[in-house]
Design a protein around this nucleic acid. Structure first.
Length: 672
DNA sequence: CATCGTATAGTTTTT
DNA sequence: CTATACGATG
């Protein structure tokens, strides 16, 4: 153990006799504990890396952890170590056992949008439902899956006719998914659990593979994930979980922080270790965090402390508008960076909703501040990426009707809905895929030759590409040719609102193609193009999406995305009622989770924390007045310095700032 | 069947 | 205000 760990941390690393719960406050070095423990297990306990599994909640965290373990054990001893997200682990299991689950290799994963259109289609048939019921059913199904409730159970538990309806849709939905050879996100967890329940021998196989299991961010596990952990650990009890109930911010997607205390029941021999020393923040920042979170009820009491000195006061700045707020943040970063000779990457701006990044982005550009937006629309949900993925899917599996429908007329091939409907009817009747149906004789009676010809042309073209793909020793260039052939770039250009956007979209495509190349070259077991595409389809390269972090840029991210990260200087923006306790949370009386979210935001900061808000905020074109967040009153007032609140203060500031930096915009933002 | 236009709805948070 | 969806027109 090369690293300096404190006594408690060391205890957590070395304790392996019974299940262990590490209650790790923010910044208490939990990642160090996990990584050191993995190294310890490998080096001191003789456990092979391939028999250790560590589970995190984000791909980024997983990658980081793997890297750190690699550094600790130096060399290839860490080969075969599994560090992945819950969903990735589930995916691995499903991929290995897919035949047992009734899936064919190369199955696809439906995202939110795919699911919604599937449900829409499904419900239109039964009864013409409204749009918001589709969404309600979608979240109901997700909730059921998270709690391992099968359609049959849902059916029998249903009390109201509406629930009954939802349960029926649920059953059909699952059937449809299987017909599409597809799974949804929740299935990645629930399918393995259901498999393990029904086939103990399969479970045993996996239990034998996993000699030690570590779970990070345990407070974020949902019912299904809890069950999965329990099953994989089995009687052996070789388990370490790390969590912090104060950082539970995913209850809205089924996370159950009470899983932390549930452990005590399930494992009577559970050992609990608390980590309370913080190695990240100044004591002022910690005091603010502690004071705020004290307003929440607690399962486990804990108080963070640090030896890093008192630090600067926390600034609370009120700006006159949302625009002024972003402007202020930009100029603050600029001047602070110059004065303190820091780098851009030392700053992060945290916000509640993704929409807040727009204005911010604009201001950053205006001031030529390099920035990086973390999150937003995920790479794989971008239309252009989904299009190309559909092409790839169709190449690997011509019977993927979903992929077929997506791109048969993209770019335009003059194949419209009526043609496709007839094709669909025929395919249904004759139990063949849409792709197959195109070439069948019987179609000639269903469809006029001019329309059928277009379909057949498309199929013939795809066949040609497919053949070339088989024979070529540079498959990726075949893909490039294919995209050139169908003039996808042209189509993007026509279809985007501006050439700049089209260019960005095209860049995404090339990134995707490059990833395919890399996947192909990275020498995994199966290096066929099919396997490479399969891995891509299964989002195996999700990690690669997080790009070069070594550039010097200000980080812009949501509070949710910020969990687990830290920055020397943090801006927490939009500290307003209805936004930081978000309105829906106020209405649902769920302030506690919002408070935890704020807690997470505060504890990201190492040296300085700046909280901002706007007195007026533009929403859908109209300007609304705001009021300061209630959380401001819950902070230790002595450690705060307010700017822009009282007239006197504001004026004083205005003079000071104007004298210091000659930035007109800054002057303007304060003069209200 | 495609293109263009208008209408309309939408902002939590994510694997 | 903007992205998307749907409907009217060519």
């Amino acid at each position: 153990m090369a690293q300096r760990l404190n006594n408690r941390q060391r205890e957590a690393v070395k304790y392996i006799d019974t299940p262990l719960l590490v209650l790790a406050g923010a910044g208490s070095g939990k990642t160090s504990v996990i990584t050191t423990k993995i190294a310890y297990l490998i080096q001191e306990c003789g456990i092979k890396a391939r028999n250790i599994v560590a589970v995190t909640f984000t791909n980024k965290a997983a990658r980081e952890m793997k890297e750190r373990v690699g550094l600790l054990v130096r060399g290839r001893v860490s080969r075969g170590l599994t560090v992945s997200t819950f969903h990735h682990l589930g995916l691995t299991i499903i991929r290995k056992e897919c035949s047992l689950l009734g899936y064919k290799p190369g199955f696809s994963i439906f995202d939110d949008k795919d699911i919604r259109s599937l449900l829409k289609e499904l419900m239109m048939r039964e009864l013409n439902a409204e749009d918001d019921t589709v969404e309600r059913i979608q979240s109901a199904i997700s909730a059921w899956k998270n709690d391992l409730v099968t359609p049959k159970q849902a059916m029998s538990q249903a009390l109201q006719p509406e629930e009954m309806m939802a349960a029926r849709v649920y059953e059909n939905y699952n059937r449809m998914l299987k017909a599409y050879n597809a799974v949804d996100f929740d299935d990645l967890i629930t399918l393995p659990v259901l498999l393990f329940r029904n086939q103990p021998d399969v479970l045993e196989r996996w239990q034998n593979r996993i000699h030690y299991l570590l779970v990070d961010e345990y407070q974020d596990t949902n019912g299904a994930q809890y069950e999965l952990v329990k099953m994989l650990v089995g009687q052996r009890g070789k388990l370490t979980v790390v969590g912090d109930d104060d950082q539970s911010i995913y209850a809205w997607r089924g996370a159950r922080p009470e899983n932390l205390s549930l452990l005590q029941q399930d494992y009577p021999a559970l050992k609990v270790i608390k980590l309370e020393q913080n190695y990240r923040s100044t004591s002022r920042i910690l005091k603010a965090a502690n004071t705020l979170i004290a307003n929440n009820p607690h399962m486990f009491e804990k108080a963070l402390w640090s030896e890093l000195g008192e630090g600067e006061k926390i600034r609370v700045i009120r700006c006159r508008s949302d625009e002024a707020e972003c402007e202020r943040i930009a100029t603050e970063i600029l001047t602070h960076r110059l004065r303190k000779e820091t780098r851009y990457r030392d700053y992060a701006v945290l916000y509640r909703g993704n929409f807040q990044s727009r204005l911010l982005e604009l201001k950053m550009q205006h001031h030529q501040i390099p920035y990086h937006i973390n999150g937003g629309v995920s790479f794989f949900s971008r239309v252009e990426v989904k299009d190309v993925m559909a092409y790839l899917r169709l190449l690997v599996n011509p019977d993927d009707d979903n992929a077929f429908l997506r791109i048969v007329n993209v770019p335009r091939r003059e194949i419209g809905p009526t043609t496709l409907e007839k094709l669909g009817n025929y395919a249904n009747k004759h139990k063949v895929s849409l792709y197959q149906a195109c070439d069948e004789r019987g179609m000639e009676e269903v469809l006029a030759s001019q329309y059928l010809e277009r379909l057949r042309q498309f199929v013939a073209w795809m066949n040609r590409v497919s053949r070339r793909l088989q024979n070529s020793d540079d498959p990726v260039s075949v893909i490039r040719e294919m995209l050139g052939d169908c003039e996808y770039e042209n189509w993007l250009l026509q279809n985007s609102s501006s050439p700049v956007i089209a260019e960005k979209r095209m860049a995404n495509i090339w990134f995707l193609v490059d990833s395919l190349q890399k996947t192909l070259e990275s020498g995994e077991e199966d290096s066929s193009i099919e396997a490479a595409i399969g891995r891509l389809v299964l989002r195996d390269m999700l990690e690669r999406q997080e790009e070069e972090d070594d550039t010097d840029r200000v980080q812009l991210l949501t509070l949710h995305a910020s969990k687990g990260l830290e920055y020397p200087h943090v801006f927490l923006m939009g500290m307003e009622e209805d936004l930081l306790p978000h309105r829906t949370s106020i209405e649902e009386d769920n302030i506690e989770e919002e408070r935890r979210l704020t807690y997470v935001g505060i504890t990201r900061a190492r040296k300085t924390l700046t909280i901002t808000m706007a007195s007026r905020r533009k929403q859908f074109g109209e300007t609304l007045d705001t009021s300061p967040s209630r959380f401001l009153e819950e902070l230790p007032q002595k450690d705060l310095v307010y700017k822009g609140f009282e007239q006197g203060e504001a004026r004083q500031e205005e003079r000071k700032m104007a004298g210091r930096v000659g930035l007109e915009s800054l002057y303007k933002s304060l003069s209200d």
